[in-house]
Simulated assay, not measured.
Amino acid sequence: MVESPDDLRVVCWDLPNTLAMIGEARRDVSRTLVDWGLEPLAEDVVLVASELLANAVTYGEPPIRLSLWATPSSLSIRVTDHGPDRPRLLHLAPDALHGRGLTIVTALAPDHGTTPTPNPPGKTVWARWPTPPSTRGLLPHQQATPPPPSPLDAQVFPPIPPGRPICEL
């Protein structure tokens, strides 16, 4: 996790390009949100993580990176892959079995979008929530004990010099 002077907290996971990793990634996201005192957002964020990761594995290209970014006022999740295609909202029949990922993201996240990576091809698909008022202003040292490591150990990055991007692939 990276902590910056403006209370930015960041954690990133480089993930294998397989649908099997999504369950462990969901648990890692949930543990991190509990650690950061953001449990009220956990259900929605974990479901959005699942949808974005499934899209990255199914339609994108490796490498795949999942990251969480929290400030006192907002939480965002980002999934980066190196496939050239941007996700798109599909209008499906009620009995369709697949293709509802962005519909779910749209329903659960008040703000979301896609940003091209600095070195094409690739994109970062993101979603953002305001933090609940009861959690705003909490500093990392006021949070619970960090969760135990998982098989997808989160990469811990050193402090980032000003002007240098955090969690880039």
Rank of each mutant, 00 (worst) to 15 (best):
D153Q: 00
L19F: 00
P140G: 05
R136I: 11
T58D: 03
P162R: 09
L139A: 13
P118R: 11
R136N: 07
T71P: 04
I166C: 12
P151I: 01
R86W: 12
T106E: 15
A70W: 06
D14W: 06
H82Y: 10
S150F: 07
L89E: 01
P130G: 06
T71W: 12
R27L: 14
P162H: 10
H98N: 03
P72L: 09
P132L: 08
P147N: 06
V105T: 05
L139I: 06
F157V: 06
R136P: 08
V11L: 11
T114M: 11
P40V: 02
W13T: 00
P62Q: 13
R9P: 10
I160H: 14
D14K: 07
I64P: 02
H91N: 07
D7H: 13
T145I: 06
L33C: 08
T103D: 01
F157N: 05
P121D: 13
T117N: 13
R31L: 14
P94Q: 02
E39L: 12
R164W: 03
A144V: 11
T135P: 03
T71Q: 09
P94H: 04
A107C: 02
P62H: 09
N119C: 04
V79N: 07
I64C: 03
P120F: 12
H91V: 15
W13A: 00
D81H: 12
Q143R: 13
D14L: 12
Q143V: 06
S67G: 13
I166L: 10
A56R: 01
I22C: 00
P16I: 00
L66T: 04
P72I: 13
T80V: 14
R65P: 09
L108Q: 02
